[in-house]
Design a binder for these strands. Structure first.
Lengths: 216, 216
DNA sequence: GAAGAAACTGTACGATCGTTCGCACAGTAA
DNA sequence: TTACTGTGCGAACGATCGTACAGTTTCTTC
């Protein structure tokens, strides 16, 4: 989605990109815990070999940093969840793989504060601006991807004909998010098993083959 | 839960309580949108006939204000969801009434930013301190209440024997929260119907009488 | 009455925030 | 070489935050 500067190697930009990446690696971790508004140029700079105004310059200001953090988090999410799930065949198997990878992603704390997007979605729920738009776009991409493979599963007869894929995607994301939240708020690791059981239940109720859902 | 000063009428305390209530009415609305950390003594004071340091004095500081806001939000939630649901008989009917009342509470925007507790739970997910403890306590109270009436429903034979009430409560809260989040983030009002359909489905799968769930 | 408690005001303080500006340095392009 | 661009630093800015403190007013208690 982001054009990762496929331009010829420019020593200055390379240096800048390395600095940006270092800042963003820290920023997404911070933001997953406290949110994007709580990000502070000074706090980031204090833990990096970069000046406070240096960060402001690299991203053009705080909002630029926030937007870059969202994009960086997307890349991390794709690498942790979407790409590994491509091992599984499109359709039901892929859908289930995404669910499994997502629970792992949350449980492993790829982001220190649990799912980065959960935090920032709630944070920008009721706000306007470019950051909110970016967060919404990321959310839509993810749910669209779920819906697509739910739809493929229906077409392939892996799920009952007439299955409401929007409803199914709604229920799946609800369970995943609830597991993430419960794990963070209550420190209860059992919620992941609950979420998986619920998703398995809702898939089997729509005719999914239990053997596919058992596969690790 | 809070001892609402049952002490004899003291003119000074009455005045203070009136001021506190005015501040809290505004504070919970703000916090439901931006979170408890984003609350600002100055911003509140500017919209009220109270001085900035007056607010600080009334609550003993910002943390005191945050704790009082959580308690105030609990009272509002109880009045909007828990008390109305007492019309319904304990057990399955009560459980379903709570679900209906909750979706109304979220849709009606009793709090401008959707469910107050959703916002602050995510905000204090990964923090320590008195505010987090209060948020967790409120969360436990709510889910305990759901579990209690789920258990009563099982005992009364309204739900299948052997029903895992923890699992059921997990799924119900997951759907409700997902509806709240979806409504806020995407502006899609249809998510409430989705949540109700999902809860109805999971209850009927456990043997609930559809007639009870149809009752408005 | 006097004494004291609680509700406020007004002011000031130190800290921290994001932004801006001038400047030095490194690398590219002519 | 010269001109230009991107990175990065250091200092200062105005704004805003929570808190503290002294003082005034209102009400209760003794």
């Amino acid at each position: 989605m982001t054009t990762e500067t496929p331009l010829p190697a420019d020593g200055r930009r390379l240096r800048g990109d390395r600095s940006r990446r270092a800042v963003l690696d820290l920023a997404v971790q911070d933001a997953s815990v406290r949110g994007l508004e709580a990000l502070t140029l000074g706090s980031l700079a204090a833990r990096l070999p970069v000046n406070k105004s240096g960060i402001a310059g690299l991203f053009g200001g705080k909002e630029g940093l926030q937007l870059a953090a969202v994009e960086h988090a997307r890349a991390i999410f794709v690498e942790a969840v979407v790409l590994p799930a491509r091992e599984a065949a499109p359709g039901l198997a892929r859908l289930w793989a995404l669910v499994r990878r997502w629970t792992d992603y949350s449980r492993r704390r790829v982001f220190a504060g649990g799912c980065f997007f959960r935090t920032v979605e709630v944070e920008f729920d009721t706000q306007d601006g470019a950051v909110r738009d970016a967060v919404v776009a990321a959310h839509r991409d993810w749910t669209s991807y779920l819906r697509r493979h739910a739809g493929l599963a229906v077409e392939a007869g892996e799920l009952a004909a007439g299955t409401d894929v929007d409803q199914l995607a709604f229920e799946i994301t609800a369970m995943l998010n609830a597991a993430n939240d419960g794990s963070l708020l209550l420190g209860d690791d059992g919620v992941y098993a609950r979420a998986l059981a619920a998703v398995r239940g809702t898939l089997e109720a729509r005719g999914a083959d239990p053997a596919v859902l058992a596969a690790r």
